[in-house]
C-alpha cells in the first residue's frame, strides 16, 4: 500500500493494470487495451512484466488530457478470470470508502 506517488521504479510481481483519475471529474479509471480509459476494472489491460507495464504506462502518461496521475497497480485474477484489486488501497479506489458517509450513519 505504499503510495504510488513514491513509485519510482517499475517492478511488478504479478498481473497489473494502469490506473489513474479521469481529468474532468476525477473518477477512478483504468487503461484499456483499446488505448482508452474505462471506469470498469474488468475492461483494464493486464500487463505481466516490467516491459509491458512500462509501455502501457508510457501510453497512459501521453494521454494527459484523458486522465491524470497514472500508475501501475497490482491486481489478482480470479479462477473465473475476473480481475480483482491487488491491495486494500486499490480495493478502496474501486469500491469506495469502507465507512458510512455521514448521512448513512
Amino acid at each position: 500500500m505504499t503510495s504510488p506517488l513514491e513509485q519510482k521504479k517499475i517492478k511488478i510481481a504479478g498481473p497489473s493494470v494502469v490506473t489513474a483519475n479521469r481529468t474532468w471529474d476525477g473518477i477512478v479509471v483504468y487503461r484499456t487495451a483499446a488505448k482508452g480509459w474505462s471506469a470498469e476494472l474488468s475492461e483494464a489491460a493486464i500487463v505481466r512484466n516490467s516491459d509491458e507495464a512500462k509501455a502501457l504506462l508510457a501510453e497512459a502518461v501521453a494521454d494527459d488530457v484523458g486522465a491524470i496521475g497514472p500508475y501501475i497497480a497490482p491486481v489478482q485474477i480470479g479462477e473465473d478470470g475476473k480481475i480483482l484489486p491487488g491491495n486494500l488501497r486499490e480495493q478502496i479506489r474501486r469500491t469506495g470508502i469502507t465507512i458510512g458517509q455521514p448521512a448513512q450513519v
Binding site: M1, S3, I97, I99
Partner: peptide, 13 residues
C-alpha cells in the same frame, strides 16, 4: 486511506 492518496492505513474506521 478511505480518501487520501498519501495514506498507508485507514483512520476513520
Amino acid at each position: 486511506l478511505d480518501y487520501c492518496s498519501l495514506a498507508n492505513a485507514r483512520s476513520i474506521p
